[in-house]
Amino acid sequence: MASSQSHDADVIAGFINLGDVSGLKRFAGRDFDWNACLTFGGARMLPLAAAISANIADPSYSGNAIQVIQWMIEAGASPRHRAPHTVKDSWSMWKEDDTEKTKMSVNLAGHSAISYAFKWLDEMRKRKGGADWSSSIKFLEVVVRTLASEPSTTPKVGVHHSVCELWESIRELTSTHNVILETSDGEVSAHDHVLMVASPVLKAMLGSSMQEGASRRIPIRDSPSASVSLFLDILYAGSTYSDPDYKTMLVALDLAHRWQVPGVVEMLSAPLREMITDESFVAIAEASLLKGLEPLQRACAAFGAKNAKIQALLKARTLPTAVSRLLGSREPAETEQKKAKKRRTF
């Protein structure tokens, strides 16, 4: 009789193939071994290698492959862990129009996820049979950057729902609030001690003889009340009952970054990965670059690499320079393209 771990591995392999992060979150037990081989496509391989194998041939159908890889790393999968040398399987790829001349194979034994990705990059760059693997190479370059980056070191702990309810109640107890945040469309209130403990910037404002400290009023008229309220919801309880759009999220993210509240920055940047669309791409990508949010940058790079509309904008050179570079453009900046002006002296 098969062990429960083997049954779990079959399910996990299925969700990896679908690129379904939510499915992985629901069905992967806390004790699941992310560094043990599972069966994927008839071959034994590590879960991270499976995520690569599932999407490498045609990244245009890769779904949320990078998000899957990021989440598995956070769950405990190590990009450096190597498959046992007892693994006898390999993974093969080819072009349908000329299988015999273009077929390539990589043995899985002894490979870590990152060495597996590099091995495929080496094979594809050889262009065996004249095959063009440029889209797969772009995908693998994003994968390598994802695997090589450091995962979030912020510890995540389970909190009983009653704790969240307690802090939500404190947040809603407006009769005890003693600070007013003046937004672009109204006032939002909060407790000074919560703001001061969370943010060194707000602590400096409220704890000094500055106008904000004396009046207990902080003007932030460049931000709507919905974004300020979202920031406070996350600050107090790490959750919200609102359903914000990406614009509201980005302003709240900017406040958290401006006020140096890294925990809220991290909590807001994670859901933004799943809000990347044709419409939101440029705004989210620019925010990720401006604030140095590497996981969000990788999610944007993965989306842009496979999205036809974004690729068309990249080709037309209508994307901001920094965003173009995030997508791998090697075009020099406009200022670098122009010839240096001649200075006249008198």
Rank of each mutant, 00 (worst) to 15 (best):
M1Y: 08
Q5A: 15
D10F: 07
F15E: 08
G19R: 03
S22K: 14
S22C: 05
R26F: 10
A28T: 12
D31C: 07
C37W: 01
L38G: 02
T39K: 09
G41A: 06
A43T: 12
R44L: 12
M45L: 15
P47T: 14
I52T: 03
I52M: 07
S53D: 13
I56S: 02
P59K: 08
S62W: 05
G63D: 11
A65T: 11
I69P: 00
I73S: 01
I73G: 00
S78M: 10
P79C: 11
R80Y: 13
R82I: 14
V87Q: 06
K88G: 09
W91I: 12
M93I: 10
T99F: 14
E100W: 09
K101Y: 07
M104C: 13
A109S: 06
G110S: 06
H111R: 10
I114S: 08
Y116M: 06
Y116G: 01
A117R: 08
K119T: 11
W120T: 01
K126G: 00
K128N: 02
G130H: 02
D132M: 05
I137P: 00
L140C: 02
E141F: 07
V143H: 07
V143N: 02
L147T: 05
A148H: 12
E150T: 15
S152H: 09
K156D: 06
V157T: 14
V157H: 12
V159H: 06
W167H: 13
W167C: 01
W167T: 06
E168R: 12
S169P: 03
I170Q: 13
I180D: 08
L181K: 01
H191Q: 12
D192F: 01
D192L: 01
V197F: 15
G207Q: 06
G207D: 12
S208T: 14
E212A: 00
E212L: 04
A214L: 15
R216Q: 08
R216G: 01
S223E: 04
S227Y: 11
V228E: 04
Y236P: 01
A237C: 10
A237G: 07
S239N: 04
S239C: 04
T240F: 07
D245L: 09
M249C: 15
L250Q: 04
V251I: 15
A252E: 02
A252C: 08
A256S: 13
A256P: 00
A256W: 11
H257Q: 14
W259N: 06
V265W: 10
L268R: 08
R273N: 04
R273Y: 06
E274M: 09
I276R: 05
I276A: 02
T277Y: 11
T277Q: 04
D278N: 14
I284L: 02
E286S: 09
K291R: 15
P295S: 09
A299V: 12
C300G: 05
A301R: 02
G304W: 11
K306E: 05
I310C: 03
A316T: 11
V323K: 03
R325V: 13
G328D: 10
T335S: 10
T335D: 14
K342S: 12
R343N: 03
